[in-house]
Design a protein around this nucleic acid. Structure first.
Lengths: 147, 147
DNA sequence: AGACACGTAACAAAATATGTTTCATGATCC
DNA sequence: GGATCATGAAACATATTTTGTTACGTGTCT
């Protein structure tokens, strides 16, 4: 069960973007994720199309937020990434002939859908501003710990 | 995002087991899933250890339910399969040094945990007897449709 | 013109679920 | 007791998918 880490990685980048003066290059962002600039561009492409960020080419170019963090929810980001199914659990095959399998599929799919609805509702209720606030809190604690 | 179909496949088998007189061989069950007997044994091994089914070797051997369907919940089966994370979404890395990443990870993990709790609660509330009832209903409709 | 940075496609590598083969162990039938 | 049947388990092969990488094109700024 390989898990899709794009959401967490993109969220990480967006908050850094907020604190960054001017445009941040894919190469810089890739360094934060310990990965390749092309991977960053791939992940950010959906966010650009969704209007969450803008990219500029050429000298001094890079990535910038198109809105404030407070105006972006986890749901926005999730959908910008293509709203992939959040579940690792799935049915064996669609449209089986076996009526037993049909009954299992239906009930399982319904239950997963319900859980997904809750998850997306929660995603919609959390803004990146909230995450940034979490970070600020950690930073404050980190500093006081150094005294 | 490949999804783990073991849960749906095993549920399918268990209901068939209930309707089957005597022990059902791995080969017979594999036919129902269009797969290999070894795959069936692998999936069923956890259920045997959890006491949901029993297996007998030799002539006339095979798989049988250890309890009635009404006494087995989806949660039981899920746990017997090793209780794998139901999510395809995950964090990029554990224990990151970056405080931003820490904040993102924490909030995301918490939210996923909450959705997982709901899902498992629902799983606990659904018995295989319920699924069998769903099947019987479909079967009745199927028959009336043939008239 | 030249350097910079994104956009895109094609390719490579790594991880993992699934499928397959093989042999060992135990149970039943004759 | 030997033959047959079926699970148990390990080793190996395959297929799919995610992630990483390379290469080249396009646009922008100095």
């Amino acid at each position: 069960m390989p898990s899709d880490s794009r959401l967490s990685r993109v969220l990480h980048l967006l908050i850094h973007l907020d604190r960054h003066a001017g445009a941040a290059t894919s190469e810089l962002l890739a360094g934060m994720l310990s990965t390749n600039p092309v991977v960053v561009r791939r992940m950010m492409a959906g966010l650009r199309e969704a209007g969450l960020v803008v990219s500029e080419r050429g000298h001094g170019g890079g990535w910038m937020l198109a809105r404030s963090l407070a105006e972006i929810t986890l749901l926005d980001v999730h959908q910008a990434l293509g709203a992939p199914s959040p579940f690792a659990i799935g049915i064996a095959r669609d449209d089986p002939r076996c009526l037993v399998e049909q009954a299992v599929n239906t009930r399982l799919s319904d239950t997963l859908r319900e859980a997904e609805a809750l998850l997306l509702e929660r995603f919609g209720a959390i803004s990146l501003g909230d995450l940034a606030a979490d970070f600020d809190c950690r930073m404050a604690q980190h500093r006081s710990h150094l005294l």
